[in-house]
């Protein structure tokens, strides 16, 4: 295996990248919303870059979920917050798959000169990203809750 694969597939770099890319979606969306109706040349490239970030985010999310979450899941299922996996994590892992779709729709509306119509999609993206972040914290706390 290529040495870089060890770095990318390791837990900490994947977690760092997961949080970094996830959190980045919020300020990026806010900046786009603030400049949505202003004729700035960098808005379309920024919208495309934000969509790219949302697709790229699937990679560290997948590494963490597939390789490292099973151990966390075992702890949660043995503890008193079983719902943290059964409801929160199950919902989170699937909501995350719609994040890039939502971002791409928002970016496509900016690129096709319909910025006003993109507004609610950027707002949905911000709300969903924050919700997914909070869900991640709940799952983490749930792993420490003993039965």
């Amino acid at each position: 295996m290529h040495p870089m694969a060890d770095v990318i597939l390791a837990r900490d770099p994947a977690l760092f990248l997961h949080i970094l890319l996830g959190v980045a979606l919020i300020p990026l969306s806010i900046v786009i919303l603030l400049y949505l109706m202003k004729k700035v040349s960098w808005l379309k490239p920024l919208a495309i870059a934000t969509a790219a970030v949302s697709w790229l985010q699937i990679l560290p999310a997948g590494i963490l979920y597939l390789n490292f979450y099973p151990a966390t899941k075992t702890l949660i299922k043995a503890g008193s917050w079983v719902w943290a996996h059964d409801i929160i994590m199950e919902t989170k892992e699937h909501w995350g798959l719609l994040l890039p779709v939502i971002t791409t729709v928002a970016a496509a509306l900016v690129v096709t000169n319909q910025p006003d119509k993109s507004r609610k999609w950027w707002i949905l993206l911000i709300i969903l990203t924050i919700a997914i972040g909070i869900m991640g914290r709940i799952v983490k706390i749930g792993a420490g809750m003993q039965a």
Partner: peptide, 24 residues
């Protein structure tokens, strides 16, 4: 198409959460 996409997205998100709550 705009309404179909918006309500389908919100509906899809809500359906996933509702399903796991119901299952639990």
């Amino acid at each position: 198409s705009e309404d179909v996409a918006w309500y389908s997205t919100l509906g899809g998100l809500a359906a996933i959460l509702a399903f796991y709550v119901f299952e639990f």
